[in-house]
Amino acid sequence: MYKKSSGFTLIELLIVVVIIGLITAVALPNYREYVMAGNRNAAKGDLLELQQWMERNYSLTNSYAVLPAGTALTTAQLPFNTTPRSSAKTNYNLSFTANPTSTAFTLQAVPVNGQVNDTTCSTLTLTSAGVRGATGSGGASTCWNK
């Protein structure tokens, strides 16, 4: 007589392992792309916020690169220079270019750490005229409209 045993056979376990492997092979690249797109959206939001900060500063000093009188610094510094602001892992470094007599500026978000693998949209830029730019294979229209 055969004794009924409980448990899984080796074939059943191998089938489960293959199914899990296939699901992982499909899902992991998609997950990484969504994470990079989310980080990119955070950087775009921060660039827009900094653009408004630059405009407020300009309305007080008539310059994008000078701070109002009475502040400890004389040249403008961004209120924050990384995205995200309060995390140990930085995805983008934020900076701007403007001379003290300038009536224009360019903000940029340069990818760092794991975000450098985002070849579709690398460095994001935003000017005082509202011109949005991006390096990478996606171009400005793709990167800013997603």
Rank of each mutant, 00 (worst) to 15 (best):
A65D: 09
T83K: 13
E49A: 07
S59I: 12
N39M: 08
K44C: 03
M36E: 11
G45N: 01
S87G: 14
P68N: 06
L78E: 14
E33H: 03
V66E: 14
M36H: 00
T83F: 06
L50D: 02
N39W: 02
S59A: 03
K44F: 11
S59F: 10
E33Q: 11
L47N: 02
A42M: 08
A88P: 14
P68S: 11
T74I: 07
T90A: 15
N41Q: 05
A37G: 00
E33W: 00
Q52H: 10
R40F: 08
N41W: 06
S87A: 15
N41F: 02
S63G: 12
M54D: 10
T75F: 11
Q51I: 05
W53S: 07
L50A: 07
L78W: 07
R32D: 01
Y64I: 06
Q52C: 02
K89G: 01
R40L: 01
N91E: 04
T61P: 07
L73N: 09
N57R: 04
A88S: 15
N91I: 04
G70E: 04
D46S: 12
Y31M: 13
A72L: 05
Y92W: 00
S87C: 06
V66M: 14
T71N: 08
E55G: 09
N57P: 07
L47G: 11
L73V: 01
V66L: 14
G45P: 05
A72W: 06
T82Q: 11
T83E: 14
Y58E: 05
S63T: 15
A88G: 14
G70W: 09
G70M: 07
R56H: 09
A37F: 10
P84C: 08
S59D: 11
S63M: 14
S59W: 10
G45I: 02
N62E: 15
K44A: 11
N41G: 03
P84G: 12
A65F: 13
A42K: 13
P79W: 00
E33G: 00
G45V: 07
A42W: 01
T71D: 03
K89R: 08
L47V: 03
D46A: 14
T75Y: 10
V66A: 12
A37L: 13
N39V: 07
V35A: 01
E49M: 01
T83D: 13
A76Y: 13
S86L: 13
Q52G: 12
Y92K: 01
